[in-house]
């Protein structure tokens, strides 16, 4: 299998782009013409060949550039990766899960040889070859969580279970939709979800927490979440709002198709074996309106969803200021 990795940027000149194949497999999140907040959960992995759900950790054409963008963000702010001391074991669990999955699912890209605790890892796209001793952090250049998530697309939260709650005690967060690890580390499930409007009243969190606590080894799950971002920027953190916030104002009817992106988060939930912690990877997919509208059914549905959405949610999802421009653009693709 030959694979192509884009050379592209997620900041500055924003050369990020999707190939026709990447558009075709984009995880379009709406299965109805209206949107309400719901906990839409399915077993993971599992999906048609070539889909973003096929494998545990999807590797796509953006892989190499995304990892370069993460390295830039970390160089500016090392606190984007944190792990409280008791979470190191969970970091090893995650490292094992990812290495084993990727070597199995993408044998042309990744190889893992294990001889007891002596491990040999080869990551061809990033040109990495590493021999190390499993569970011995001195044999890796970073802690296990940071090491493996510098080589894996998506943000990662590691949750510690205690007192019938989940605590965000470790994470690698460089492509978050406006939330901050530095601010949230050590918080429990309800505290870090506090800003989500409506959901609390709907009892969504109680149900979600109950669901998460019941996630068992050997059976992972996924759900999709979405928001809107101006420009293909991964790092839309509160810390850097001054860099990306003003860009929201740059949308015009002429450029909205290329500059306004639908941002889909593929969230998955894994119970880790040795630590009994939960891993919560949040993988981000970006697609601009113009590319989305190459699929007439998506154009039609997105138009209805964004036109009729609850104003509170439009605000929370960050596109209220541009809603009119977006909806008018999408209306042009609807032959209703």
């Amino acid at each position: 299998m030959t694979r192509h990795f884009n050379t592209e940027t997620f900041r500055g000149d924003y050369t990020y782009h999707n190939s026709p194949e990447a558009i075709r497999r984009f995880p379009f999140p709406f299965d109805q013409d209206t949107y309400t907040y719901s906990v839409n959960i399915a077993p993971h992995p599992g999906g048609p060949t070539g889909s973003t759900f096929e494998f545990a950790f999807d590797v796509d054409e953006h892989y190499v550039s995304e990892m370069q963008d993460r390295a830039i963000t970390l160089a500016e702010d090392p606190n984007r990766c944190q792990s409280l001391p008791h979470m190191e074991l969970a970091g090893w669990d995650l490292l094992e899960l990812i290495m084993v999955s990727k070597a199995r699912d993408y044998p042309d890209l990744f190889t893992l040889n294990r001889d007891g605790d002596q491990w040999h890892w080869i990551n061809r796209p990033l040109g990495i070859e590493q021999r190390f001793t499993f569970l011995d952090p001195a044999t890796l250049p970073y802690g296990p969580l940071e090491y493996i998530t510098r080589q894996t697309q998506g943000d990662f939260a590691l949750l510690h279970e205690r007192d019938r709650n989940l605590w965000l005690d470790a994470g690698m967060i460089t492509s978050q939709a406006d939330w901050s690890l530095d601010f949230d580390v050590g918080m429990n499930f309800f505290e870090w979800h506090a800003p989500v409007p409506k959901a609390r009243q709907m009892g969504v969190f109680d149900k979600a927490l109950k669901f998460l606590l019941a996630v068992e080894q050997q059976q992972a799950y996924r759900r999709l979440n979405w928001t809107m971002t101006v420009n293909p920027r991964l790092d839309t953190s509160p810390e850097n709002y001054h860099k990306w916030g003003p860009e929201k104002r740059s949308i015009t009817p002429q450029n909205v198709g290329q500059k306004q992106f639908l941002r889909v988060e593929l969230q998955t939930f894994w119970r880790l074996p040795r630590s009994n912690a939960l891993a919560f990877p949040i993988r981000c997919y970006l697609c601009c309106l113009e590319d989305l509208c190459t699929n007439p059914e998506w154009a039609r549905r997105l138009h209805l969803v964004l036109r009729d959405i609850d104003p509170v949610l439009a605000d929370y999802k960050g596109f209220a200021v541009n809603q009119k421009t977006i909806v008018e653009y999408l209306a042009g693709f609807s032959c209703v």
């Binding site: 409280l84 001391p85 008791h86 074991l89 279970e161 205690r162 068992e216 080894q217 050997q218 059976q219 074996p273 630590s275 009994n276």
Partner: peptide, 11 residues
């Protein structure tokens, strides 16, 4: 599969 309701608190 194994489940744990009595895990050590590694803190």
């Amino acid at each position: 599969a194994p489940k744990n309701l009595f895990q050590l608190d590694l803190r």
